[in-house]
Computed example of a mutant assay.
Amino acid sequence: MSDIFATASSTLDPRARARQPLVFGGIPEAEGWALAPITARDRVHFRVDRELPLDELRADLPDGVTVSYDQGDGLYRVDGARGSASVLADWVRAWCARHGCTTVGLRAETDVRRRAPKDLPPDFLADLCRHYGPVSLKRLQRNMSTIRLHLPDPDDLGQQVYEWVLKAVGQFDETKSVPFGAFLATQLSKWVHDLGRNAHGRTAADTEHKQQKAIATFIAEHQRRPSEKELAAYMGQSVATLRRNSQTVATLNGLRNLQSLDGGPDGTEILLPDSGEAPDEIMGEAEQTLLSHALTAACAPDPNARRDQRAGQPNVLGWATWYLTTWGGQTKTQLSSDLNTSVRNMNVYADRVEKALKDRLAELAE
């Protein structure tokens, strides 16, 4: 009789149920990770000024070397054996040069611990994604206001969540005695924050995050928004520093609100005043509006390019480089520091703008 009650108690105890291992594709989770253990390799990260022929690159790679392409970030990763990082970096530069491509931000990294999701049993991986996809969406509800700034389409959000699950699969180290679910939960918040960093620069995104967090905490404590002096004191900054950082945040929000970068700027009609009746000041403003419109149109996605290609995405960094150095009174060095990116990288995006802008200005001159 005592055994019956013990069994019933064990069945009803939620802690007992929680200890039951998850099974994916007929394989317990712990055993599935063991089938494709995480391994160390050297890796070269890089971007290029135009899309590479991946099939040709894979065919030319040395034995034992693989390449992957992150379409969302436009980032290539070449993986090889430990100790080969510098050799791989030289090989990538030479290969790209032979094919008329220029590498951007090439970086060699040693002793990277990763697994390829494709090395896991297919049924195991499919069931794992089906389980952790909805779990991740629920976990991300607290971050949804931030996520919608970058992924307003529910389909895009769903795809991004599963990409994050696969990214966690590749990085999860089963030897550290941390459950995969806990590891995934900690990474999700980090990756949500990276959405803003990737779109608008690390420094600007971090500044906005700190300010919004401080304002929210102040409101919770005092049931009102802080004044400028109160917010500066709360954050341990001078008012001058707060104002400078607030300008960075305002620039970031302005970039987000440039709907014409995503929504067909050429479809927007611009009404111009009659030059015979309007004063010179208004005509000067009209010409600046036309120039600003031409700049924004030059940074819009190419309608003939795929969304995963660089040309198929809004050129936000190119727009910021041109606008803030032309009208914002900033040098490229200052802007590089604010956005935490190199001047060389800014020039790559600005050159794309220049080519498109010349065509736009030629149309305006006609």
Rank of each mutant, 00 (worst) to 15 (best):
Q171F: 04
Q171S: 06
F172L: 10
K176T: 15
S177E: 09
S177R: 12
V178S: 03
P179R: 08
P179A: 07
P179T: 05
G181S: 05
A182R: 11
F183V: 08
F183S: 10
F183P: 14
L184E: 13
T186I: 15
K190P: 10
K190M: 04
V192S: 08
V192L: 03
H193D: 13
D194I: 06
D194G: 04
D194E: 15
L195S: 01
R197H: 06
R197D: 06
A199Q: 05
A199R: 02
A199M: 03
A199F: 00
R202I: 13
R202L: 11
R202P: 15
R202H: 13
T203A: 03
T203L: 01
A204T: 13
A205M: 01
A205E: 00
D206P: 15
D206K: 12
D206W: 08
D206A: 14
E208G: 02
H209G: 02
K210M: 10
K210D: 07
Q211V: 07
Q211A: 06
K213G: 04
I215A: 15
I215L: 05
I219L: 07
I219S: 14
A220N: 02
A220Q: 01
A220Y: 00
E221G: 11
H222R: 03
Q223N: 03
R224Y: 04
R225W: 06
R225A: 12
R225T: 10
P226L: 00
S227E: 10
K229L: 13
E230Q: 06
E230N: 04
L231M: 02
L231I: 02
L231N: 03
A232W: 02
A233V: 15
A233S: 13
Y234C: 13
Y234L: 02
Y234P: 05
M235C: 02
G236H: 07
S238W: 06
S238C: 09
A240Y: 14
A240K: 13
T241P: 13
T241S: 10
